[in-house]
């Protein structure tokens, strides 16, 4: 080497205060010159150097958010909440794809059989989707990290609610989009909304005692039986759960189940599954 970077410039370089074009020149030179690197090591602030390495290290292995997590971050969701939601099974593409497929089939069926006053199949299926989605979001059978999560200081009910709200928003959003595809029915096509909230909150409240698999199964089965009974007595008209009175009952059930869920919230803080 015929020249070397001055010690003063090396100090500025170490502090990150050297400006271009001297910076570019020093950068290239230091890469090739062992003597200047040795001087740089002596004049550099070791604390600042460690901090710089740490920043670089953090930059390199900080998780790059996936599509869904990135979307949540853009919507203003806090980073740690977005990460918790990214681990929710019912918010994965496969589940959401299945929901879209079911809704499309029920919408097509509604168009094919437009002889009744309301799209019965669609209204019957739509409330089950958030129920199933929430059921798939937690519990030892479906959440691979359930056992680690249940002994973590974050309250189990809080984690459950974070996931539930996200799943309900996603499911109801898709249900809502499907409703827009049935404009001919007017507001009657929205009669799934209150039953959906009633089934989901009842399923959650019962899962505190029956577990995350049996409870939604019981609620879903009960919904099916109710529809069969309503169909038998409807005489060709709108099924009872989708009438104004039925909607009132659904709203009352949703409110009662929400109150019960709040009362039993501490049960979600303990392991809910078989033990060896």
């Amino acid at each position: 080497m015929t020249w070397h970077v001055s010690e003063e410039d090396l100090r500025a370089y170490a502090r990150g205060e050297l400006a271009p074009p001297v910076l570019w020149s020093a950068d290239t030179h230091v890469t090739a010159c062992a003597r200047c690197r040795a001087v740089l090591a002596e004049v550099g602030d070791p604390v600042a150097l460690d901090a710089a390495w740490e920043r670089l290290d953090a930059k390199l292995d900080a998780p790059r958010p996936g599509f869904f997590e990135g979307l949540l971050l853009r919507l203003g969701v806090a980073g740690h909440t977005a990460r918790l939601l990214a681990a929710t099974p019912a918010l994965r593409g496969s589940w959401l794809g299945a929901v879209v497929a079911v809704l499309m089939m029920s919408v097509v069926a509604a168009y094919a059989g437009r002889t009744t006053a309301s799209p019965t199949l669609f209204l019957a299926l739509a409330p089950l989707l958030p129920l199933a989605g929430v059921a798939l979001s937690y519990g030892p059978a479906l959440d691979p990290t359930y056992e680690m999560a249940v002994v973590s200081p974050m309250h189990g009910f809080r984690l459950l609610m974070i996931r539930t709200v996200a799943v309900i928003v996603a499911s109801l959003g898709l249900d809502g989009l499907a409703t827009l595809a049935l404009p001919g029915y007017g507001l009657r096509a929205l009669a799934w909304l209150l039953p959906a909230l009633a089934l989901t909150t009842t399923g959650l409240a019962l899962s505190a005692r029956l577990g995350p698999v049996l409870a939604p199964s019981v609620v879903g089965g009960g919904w099916a039986l109710l529809l069969v009974a309503a169909h038998a007595s409807a005489d060709g008209g709108t099924l009872a759960p989708f009438t104004a009175a039925g909607q009132g009952v659904a709203a009352a059930v949703a409110a009662l189940a929400a109150a019960l869920l709040f009362l039993v919230r501490d049960r979600f803080d303990l392991f809910n599954g078989s033990a060896a």
């Binding site: 990460r83 990290t145 680690m148 999560a149 973590s152």
Partner: peptide
């Protein structure tokens, strides 16, 4: 111990750290 299969080692431990 269960893992979210698409997480990297860093992301998984990061997830548990959030729970903590």
């Amino acid at each position: 111990p269960g893992f979210h299969p698409d997480f990297t080692a860093f992301e998984f431990v990061d997830y548990v750290a959030i729970l903590k």
